[in-house]
Write a protein that binds this DNA or RNA. Structure first.
Lengths: 304, 304
DNA sequence: TCTTCGGATTTAGATTATCTTGATGCGTAA
DNA sequence: TTACGCATCAAGATAATCTAAATCCGAAGA
């Protein structure tokens, strides 16, 4: 941008408009300023460029030939800018950005996205899979689905899927676990990506005397924990969403009948106080519907 | 430009620069303002667009995905503008605009232009053939070649080809004209594109008693007059440049031996007071050289 | 040739936009 | 925890830009 940085862009816009409309008056009208202002802009730009761009005639400004090629490219440039602005503005209307945890994206959202597309073909859903709790009013994220207790500042949150927490183990290992006391002999694979699910809180919510499983790996992704457990490396505390299919097909088992309610689940969140636009309300309604099936499935999960 | 007219272009430039450089500081440096100023520009632009374009991180601004496509097009647009400005600036160096009368362009300049190109292949000469006396400092015209007495305000003028004025007629008609008195029986085809050449001034300069030729057509182009005279429609006052070839090949004859000096000729003019750039000085030198041949040719012209 | 008219330009002052500085906040690295 | 880098905010200073009215200029018409 060597040439451009020393130019007044508004001057260039004035020049382009004058070239296109043929007079200062018309250009001024299009730009919403007086003809005088346009005149000054054009003159300044001519000075900056070092060439006379218009011949002043009694019925307006006519491009000099030196200017003709210039105006063509100027117009092309401004049209491109215009299109860029138009596109990014419009993209508001037809794309929806959902920020979700990677585990939720993998296990639930992405597999169902084609249903959403079938119903709302005009809306492109972009999934922003991140651990980070994004600031809904300070980013381009329209909606977030988060695991937690629903108490976040600055968001309106609706509980869409309550979750219980229970012990899971690979099928072979599960047979050795008949009671809570047996946990003390097992190695625990802990997820530290969330502060919500801990053995302490689980024993407390389950209302049983705490025992101490052996300390195994600490991973920062619940799905990683599940995979590690499936591989027979130990046990972990899980909730329905992340282990439903592994329980259903027998790769995992829930050896104990205790499903503790830690008061958490999945919430769908929008920026506080603002009525979400249509596309977001549609998306939320769609999530609720799909969630109904998921919740029913979870209720039928084998355990104990 | 529906979208663009409501935007601050400088804001867009700020956004583009930040996207490219990755931080407000760097962008500010490139734009020559403080980081704070860039921050304000970016924020305002985000407000105008209605979308958050950057994620604020502790080591700079990172584009949101919504922004990525936008920045691509923004950059393309600004590059186009930049190229346009660069081109029109540079075109100064390698094109030369010469404003000449149509008759001079046809009879002299255009036929010789290929010599100029042969010697200065980098310089594109654009011939602006117009009757109008252009304002050399208020247009993109670098040099003008004008017929007259050299007294024009605002230009530095150099006489390159003095011209005499004499009576011409088609060969057949010329035989009937033996003396000035015979002119009274002829029809005169007058050029009124210039005030310089009139029968009154010619008789005065020739120092002979005026007679009145019959009034024929009045045309606004000396070449048109010549053609009309060649067609046998009458006589006219001409000067060497416009009738040299017709005299040489016999289509025209100059029946009288009087070549009146009206004090006019062709002058090459540049904007007053300014030393012309190299390309213009080269052009003028070239014109002088070519003119030497032309003047020699004119001296050998048959007459009387 | 004179007048008139449409448009461009100039000028000065008023109004806005923009910038700078210094303070503040926030997240990462030491 | 502190320190650092960077973004942001706030207020005043500065500079760009606009408007209005007067003026200029060339073309068309009387």
């Amino acid at each position: 941008m060597r040439n451009l940085n020393s130019m007044h862009l508004n001057g260039l816009r004035a020049v382009e408009t004058v070239a296109r409309t043929g007079s200062l008056q018309a250009a001024g009208e299009e730009l919403g300023v007086s003809a005088s202002a346009v005149s000054q802009q054009v003159n300044r730009t001519e000075k900056q460029i070092g060439k006379v761009l218009f011949r002043r005639t009694s019925r307006g400004l006519a491009p000099t030939e030196a200017g003709a090629a210039f105006f063509t490219r100027l117009s092309a440039g401004f049209r491109e800018l215009d299109a860029a602005v138009g596109q990014v503005r419009q993209s508001n209307a037809d794309t929806l950005v959902a920020s979700v945890a990677p585990s939720f994206a993998t296990k639930w959202l992405v597999p169902r996205l084609r249903h959403h597309f079938a119903r709302y073909p005009n809306v492109l859903v972009r999934v922003d899979a991140t651990e980070r709790l994004v600031d809904l009013s300070g980013s381009d994220v329209d909606v977030a689905i988060r695991m937690g207790d629903g108490r976040w500042p600055g968001v309106d949150a609706e509980l869409i899927l309550p979750q219980q927490v229970f012990v899971v183990a690979a099928a072979a290992k599960a047979e050795r676990i008949r009671s809570v006391a047996d946990l003390a002999r097992e190695t625990s694979i802990d997820d530290d990506s969330s502060r919500m699910v801990t053995w302490e809180r689980w024993f407390e919510a389950a209302g049983v005397a705490p025992v101490r499983p052996l300390q195994g790996a600490r991973l920062n992704d619940p799905l990683l924990c599940i995979d590690t457990v499936i591989a027979g490396q130990g046990i972990t505390l899980a909730w329905q969403l992340i282990c439903a299919d592994a329980l259903a097909d027998g790769r995992l088992a829930a050896p104990l009948p205790i499903r503790a309610d830690l008061g958490f689940g999945f919430w769908i969140c929008t920026a506080a106080g603002a009525r979400p636009p249509r596309k977001v309300r549609d998306f939320i309604a769609w999530v609720r519907e799909e969630m109904a099936e998921t919740a029913a499935l979870h209720a039928r999960l084998p355990s104990g």
